[in-house]
Amino acid sequence: MKLTVCWKWVTVDGGEPDDRWAGVSPADEAALETALTVAAADDEVVVVSAGPPGAVAALRRALAAGATRAVRIDTDGAASRDVATAVAAIAAGSDYVLCGDYSLDRGTGSVPAFLAADLGAAQALGLVSVDVTRRPVRVVRRLDGGRREVLDVPAPAVLSVEGSVARLRRASLAASLASNSAPVDVVGGPPRSEQVAVVTAYRPRARSLPAPAGGTLTRVRDILDIGGEPVHSESVTLDPPAAARRIVDQLRDWGHLPA
């Protein structure tokens, strides 16, 4: 069996592409641990990351933990569509492709979706548990509103796991030593995309406000900033294209999008 694990190596605070200030998310680590748990002794576990040379340090940690092969797709800032194509070439023939449900930079999560499409594989997102003793593997998905969905996912499939699924095993000392000089395959990657926009969330600073006056309800409203007109919800059932249009129209109505 072949298992492929996708790691997104991300610079933590926008600094230099240096492994000291970069890494992969706990979810990516959980993806590797899941693959290592699924894999039998003679199975192949390939870890792939699309990134600059600095990503090699992370890939070596994956090898130390037990991955059989590591591949770096040489690229920096390529569009996720192109990254997925490059990853698909390496992941071809895999029974399962495991991804982290989120990356350190909280990206859009588009690579696993593109990857599933390219590989003609099923995709399951937001997995909170993976039962590796079953074939096909049985997974539990997180749905909105605290609900769960249990799926049996036949291979081939792209599975995105949350960080809580597993903690990456600690590499033995001998494996850590060996990984220092372990080979990491490098394949050419797509060019940098000019369309990739880096958007970071605005985090407001704490501010001091005068103590709210009035009765309890008024104060709660003031604090939660819900003093204005209440917003009424509505439920509609539409096919996907119409639903998308409806959402965009509504957002425009509320002034979140330009008219």
Binding site: R170, A171, S172, L173, A174, S176
Partner: peptide, 9 residues
């Protein structure tokens, strides 16, 4: 001894 598995050196 180290805190890695098989960590004696």
């Amino acid at each position: 001894t180290t805190d890695r598995p098989d960590g004696d050196l």
